[in-house]
Amino acid sequence: MYWDYKMPPSYKTVHEQCYLITICFDQMLVLNSPVQEGKPINSIKDFLMKIGESLQKQ
C-alpha cells in the first residue's frame, strides 16, 4: 500500500511524507521518505517502489 500526505505549512523544508507498506516474509515492512520542497514526489514514490521490489529472501 502506498500513500502520501502534505505536511502543515509550518514545516519549512519537508513538503510531504511518502509511505510504502507491504508484507514481507510474514512481517510488515514500512518504508518512509520525506519530500523536500521543490523535489518531485514521483521521484520519491519511484525510489520507495524500487526498494520494495528489490527485496529478496536470504
Rank of each mutant, 00 (worst) to 15 (best):
residue 1 M to Y: 12
residue 1 M to N: 14
residue 1 M to C: 12
residue 2 Y to S: 11
residue 2 Y to A: 09
residue 2 Y to C: 09
residue 3 W to R: 10
residue 3 W to H: 14
residue 4 D to A: 01
residue 4 D to R: 01
residue 4 D to F: 09
residue 5 Y to C: 05
residue 5 Y to P: 02
residue 5 Y to K: 03
residue 5 Y to F: 11
residue 6 K to R: 10
residue 7 M to Q: 03
residue 7 M to K: 00
residue 8 P to K: 02
residue 8 P to T: 11
residue 8 P to H: 06
residue 8 P to F: 07
residue 9 P to S: 15
residue 9 P to F: 11
residue 9 P to L: 15
residue 9 P to Y: 07
residue 9 P to N: 13
residue 9 P to G: 14
residue 10 S to N: 10
residue 10 S to C: 13
residue 11 Y to H: 11
residue 11 Y to F: 15
residue 11 Y to Q: 12
residue 12 K to F: 14
residue 12 K to H: 14
residue 13 T to R: 01
residue 13 T to N: 09
residue 13 T to F: 13
residue 13 T to V: 15
residue 14 V to G: 08
residue 14 V to Q: 10
residue 14 V to N: 10
residue 14 V to P: 06
residue 14 V to E: 14
residue 15 H to D: 15
residue 16 E to T: 09
residue 16 E to Q: 10
residue 16 E to G: 01
residue 17 Q to W: 07
residue 17 Q to F: 08
residue 18 C to H: 11
residue 19 Y to A: 12
residue 19 Y to K: 09
residue 19 Y to P: 04
residue 20 L to Y: 11
residue 20 L to M: 11
residue 20 L to T: 06
residue 20 L to S: 04
residue 22 T to D: 13
residue 22 T to Y: 05
residue 23 I to K: 06
residue 23 I to V: 07
residue 24 C to A: 15
residue 24 C to T: 10
residue 24 C to D: 13
residue 24 C to H: 14
residue 25 F to K: 12
residue 25 F to E: 15
residue 25 F to P: 01
residue 25 F to G: 11
residue 25 F to H: 14
residue 26 D to S: 14
residue 27 Q to W: 09
residue 27 Q to E: 15
residue 28 M to L: 14
residue 28 M to R: 06
residue 28 M to D: 09
residue 29 L to I: 13
residue 29 L to Q: 08
residue 29 L to D: 09
residue 30 V to I: 11
residue 30 V to H: 03
residue 30 V to K: 00
residue 31 L to W: 01
residue 31 L to I: 01
residue 32 N to Q: 09
residue 33 S to N: 02
residue 33 S to K: 00
residue 33 S to M: 12
residue 33 S to F: 06
residue 34 P to D: 10
residue 34 P to K: 03
residue 34 P to C: 09
residue 35 V to L: 14
residue 35 V to W: 03
residue 35 V to T: 08
residue 36 Q to Y: 07
residue 36 Q to N: 03
residue 38 G to D: 11
residue 39 K to G: 00
residue 39 K to M: 12
residue 39 K to W: 06
residue 39 K to D: 12
residue 40 P to A: 06
residue 40 P to M: 04
residue 40 P to Y: 03
residue 40 P to I: 09
residue 41 I to V: 13
residue 41 I to G: 02
residue 41 I to F: 01
residue 41 I to M: 04
residue 41 I to L: 10
residue 42 N to Q: 10
residue 42 N to A: 04
residue 42 N to M: 08
residue 43 S to R: 01
residue 43 S to M: 11
residue 43 S to N: 07
residue 44 I to C: 04
residue 44 I to L: 05
residue 45 K to N: 08
residue 45 K to W: 02
residue 45 K to H: 08
residue 45 K to V: 11
residue 45 K to R: 13
residue 45 K to L: 11
residue 46 D to V: 08
residue 46 D to W: 05
residue 47 F to E: 08
residue 47 F to I: 02
residue 47 F to K: 00
residue 47 F to H: 00
residue 47 F to L: 08
residue 48 L to I: 02
residue 48 L to Y: 00
residue 49 M to E: 12
residue 50 K to G: 02
residue 50 K to H: 01
residue 50 K to N: 04
residue 52 G to S: 07
residue 52 G to Q: 05
residue 52 G to Y: 03
residue 53 E to D: 08
residue 53 E to W: 01
residue 54 S to A: 12
residue 54 S to K: 00
residue 55 L to F: 13
residue 55 L to K: 00
residue 55 L to H: 00
residue 56 Q to S: 02
residue 56 Q to A: 05
residue 56 Q to C: 05
residue 57 K to N: 06
residue 58 Q to K: 06
